[in-house]
Amino acid sequence: MAVASTVEEYIGGYPPEVRVLLLRLRETLRQAVPNGVETMALGMPTLMVDGSPVISWVAAKKHVTVQTRGQLPPALAREAEDYRVDDGVQFPYRKEVPFEFIADLAKHLAANPR
């Protein structure tokens, strides 16, 4: 598979049932960070604010990972415990994806850049 040059191409490379989830994730992040500029960085859809990456996400066969880029405050860290992986939070497609939590996460990261 060729590397996607746009977020549309990236999402379009997945099966329809995954695309629906990715489109909702994308919209959730756009609404949470309305001043974010969407781009592809290191092969991942990424929201940038003032030229700095705020949040990225990557889809895999069975899950989507949202890269958190830094420490989370205690309240968000507790909520993320069940989903935490080394580079972010991972949500299996077979479970309900917590879009409200993802929006809160994106808002925090946008307000607290690294």
Rank of each mutant, 00 (worst) to 15 (best):
L72S: 08
K61S: 08
W57Q: 02
E9N: 03
P15T: 12
V85W: 07
R69I: 00
P113R: 02
L47H: 01
F91N: 03
V7D: 01
D87T: 14
G13W: 00
R78W: 03
G88R: 13
M40G: 02
D87M: 12
Q67I: 14
M40K: 03
V58A: 14
R84Y: 03
V37L: 12
T28N: 03
S5K: 14
Q90C: 12
L25Y: 03
P53I: 06
E81R: 15
L23P: 01
P34A: 06
L109R: 15
D82G: 14
L42D: 06
A103K: 04
A111T: 02
F101Y: 15
R114W: 06
Y10G: 02
R26P: 01
Y14N: 11
D50V: 00
D82N: 09
R114C: 04
Y14G: 05
Y10L: 04
E8T: 07
H108D: 12
M40H: 03
L72A: 10
K62P: 06
P74E: 13
F99C: 10
Y93S: 10
L76R: 13
F91Y: 12
R84V: 15
R84N: 04
P34M: 04
P34T: 11
A2H: 10
I102S: 05
M44D: 01
E96F: 06
G12D: 01
L109I: 07
R114N: 08
R24L: 10
F99E: 10
I55V: 15
I55G: 00
H63N: 13
L23Y: 11
P34Y: 03
T65G: 05
P73G: 08
E38C: 00
H63G: 05
G13T: 02
Y93V: 14
N112P: 08
V64N: 06
V89F: 10
K95S: 10
V54T: 13
V18D: 04
F101T: 05
L22I: 05
V37C: 07
L109E: 01
A2N: 10
L72D: 07
A77H: 14
V49H: 07
V54G: 00
E96P: 03
L105W: 07
S5P: 03
V49W: 10
L22Y: 05
G51R: 01
P45F: 02
K107R: 15
T6G: 01
G12T: 00
E79M: 14
D86F: 11
Y83H: 14
R114Q: 08
E17L: 13
H63R: 13
E79H: 11
N112H: 15
A75D: 15
Y83D: 06
Q71M: 12
P53R: 09
S52F: 06
L72M: 11
A32N: 08
V37Q: 14
E79W: 13
D87L: 12
E38W: 01
E9W: 02
L21C: 03
L22R: 04
G12I: 00
R24A: 08
V33M: 00
P98D: 07
S56D: 04
P74M: 07
L72T: 15
L42W: 15
V7Y: 01
A60M: 13
S56A: 09
P73N: 14
M44Q: 06
V66I: 15
R78I: 10
P74Q: 10
M40V: 07
W57M: 02
A2M: 11
V58E: 08
I102P: 04
V66G: 09
S52C: 07
Q31K: 13
S52W: 05
A4N: 06
V97S: 00
G12Y: 01
